[in-house]
């Protein structure tokens, strides 16, 4: 440690030391690299994730279109509900996708 600059309180010093210790331990392979496992798993199933997102997006839309179509058939209002539910289905699909990809709390 150089004495050139004296830190005002010991807290930054400690955190600096902790940081260096962590970096050194990581370099020596003593600590598991944080999030590495999760990242590797995510990369390996990137195609799976992509497919999942695509299916989520389409599934909500299909369900919404079915509901809209059925409501129109029932109430003889074609194409009001079909149009409305197409939009709502797109939104629901987006929400589904967000729930898949959002970072865990």
């Amino acid at each position: 440690m150089s004495d050139k600059q004296v830190s005002p309180d010991p807290a930054p010093e400690t955190s600096l030391f902790e940081e260096r210790l962590r970096a050194a331990r990581q370099k020596q392979g003593l600590d598991p690299v944080p999030k590495d496992g999760a990242q590797a798993g995510r990369d390996a199933s990137a195609m799976g994730l992509g497919l999942r997102v695509g299916v989520e997006l389409v599934a909500a839309l299909v369900v919404a279109l079915l509901i809209g179509w059925a409501l129109d058939r029932w109430l003889n209002t074609r194409p009001v509900f079909l149009a409305v539910f197409a939009l709502l289905g797109g939104v629901a699909g987006m929400i589904n996708v967000w729930r898949v990809v959002k970072p865990p709390p």
Binding site: L51, R52, V55, A60, V62, V63, I95
Partner: peptide, 25 residues
């Protein structure tokens, strides 16, 4: 009115996406 409908659609789409994903793969 908007949120409830969207959430219901999202909930109903669960079995569809679950089924289609496995089947398509």
């Amino acid at each position: 009115p908007l949120i409830v409908v969207i959430e219901v659609i999202s909930y109903l789409s669960r079995p569809v996406s679950l089924a289609v994903r496995l089947f398509a793969n």
